[in-house]
């Protein structure tokens, strides 16, 4: 009997395999995910440069030196190291403006998502948790918001109230909550029907406590994914508004505004629009890559 037991143990051998912890799996997956890695590195560089802008920027982004107007960037035959990316139409150093502009874009993305994420998540949680009439009403709100031509309403609102950074953030925040609400709603619905929530309810857990302690942690992954994608969306929208002249007001170095100011000279100095455009593209691309990457890593079954 003892020998048999020995054989059984030798064959089954299950105990020898050490399962990696979820954290290890996640880390391994992240490191293998090219998009996440590249996006993450680019985003980190942009964030660091934006934070260090006062130290890194070679000039004051607001100082106009009219004698140095429209200097070409360093790769041009007439360019100099003094102004690496050249100067704009009123002689401000383009690199410095670009660095300070990153701060505006990142702030817009972050602050807008804070606001819209709060609105959308609250609505989504309520709709998903309570269901019934509450759900119907919030669904209706979502439909109505989706039917509003977003950028147009934002334009009108910013124009009527007056363009400034806080106004743009508020308007965008009240516009971009939809995706939060939609995704959090369906995630909450799924979780609500799980047995452990029913058990917690039966044990007399209050709704608020249940939402905060049981449901919220479970929708966190989805929240982070949407938050990154919506931050990118907000940055693009701000740039569009500022480009149309109805957003952040001059002399702030918003990238959209820089393209707007540069477009009158774009046939002679294409770099005036290409440089901030590329910066905008890189920032949005890296944020999107990070968002997609987080989704792939946390929920590979939901790959899109």
């Amino acid at each position: 009997m003892t020998t048999q037991h020995g054989i059984l143990k030798k064959i089954s051998g299950d105990d020898d395999i050490i399962e990696p912890t979820p954290g290890q799996i996640m880390r391994a997956r992240s490191l293998r995910h090219w998009g996440l890695m590249i996006g993450g590195i680019v985003l980190c560089i942009i964030v660091v440069l934006a934070i260090l802008a006062p130290g890194v920027a070679p000039h004051n982004p607001y100082t106009q030196i009219l004698s140095d107007r429209l200097l070409p960037p360093v790769w041009d035959s007439q360019g100099s190291m003094e102004h690496i990316l050249g100067t704009d139409q009123v002689g401000r150093d383009y690199l410095s403006r670009l660095l300070y502009g990153a701060r505006i874009s990142l702030m817009i993305g972050f602050a807008t998502v804070l606001l819209s994420g709060f609105i959308g998540t609250s609505l989504g949680l309520m709709a998903g948790y309570y269901g019934g009439r509450v759900d119907m009403f919030i669904n209706y709100l979502i439909t109505v918001r989706l039917s509003l031509p977003g950028i147009l309403v934002a334009l009108a609102a910013v124009q009527l109230i007056g363009g400034s950074l806080p106004v743009v953030i508020t308007v965008l925040g009240f516009m971009l909550w939809v995706r939060f609400a939609v995704v959090i709603r369906s995630a909450t619905m799924q979780i609500r029907n799980m047995d452990y929530i029913k058990a917690a309810k039966a044990a007399g857990c209050s709704s608020f406590r249940l939402i905060v302690t049981q449901i919220l942690p479970n929708v966190l992954n989805q929240f982070v994914v949407i938050a990154t994608l919506e931050a990118a969306h907000a940055i693009l929208l701000e740039a569009s508004l500022s480009f149309l002249g109805i957003g952040v007001q001059p002399p702030l170095p918003s990238w959209g505004l820089m393209i707007n100011e540069g477009k009158d000279f774009m046939f002679f100095k294409p770099y005036l629009i290409s440089i901030p455009g590329i910066a905008l593209f890189c920032l949005v691309l890296s944020i999107n890559l990070v968002g997609d990457g987080i989704r792939d890593v946390t929920a590979p079954e939901n790959r899109n």
């Binding site: 998009g35 569009s240 480009f243 774009m266 294409p270 290409s274 593209f281 949005v284 691309l285 999107n288």
Partner: peptide, 22 residues
């Protein structure tokens, strides 16, 4: 798809003008 998503449409338009008109 990822690139098209990150492309600011107003900038894309201006760049097309530079390429096809200039």
């Amino acid at each position: 798809a990822v690139s098209a998503q990150a492309m600011p449409s107003f900038w894309f338009g201006l760049m097309l003008i530079v390429v096809f008109c200039l």
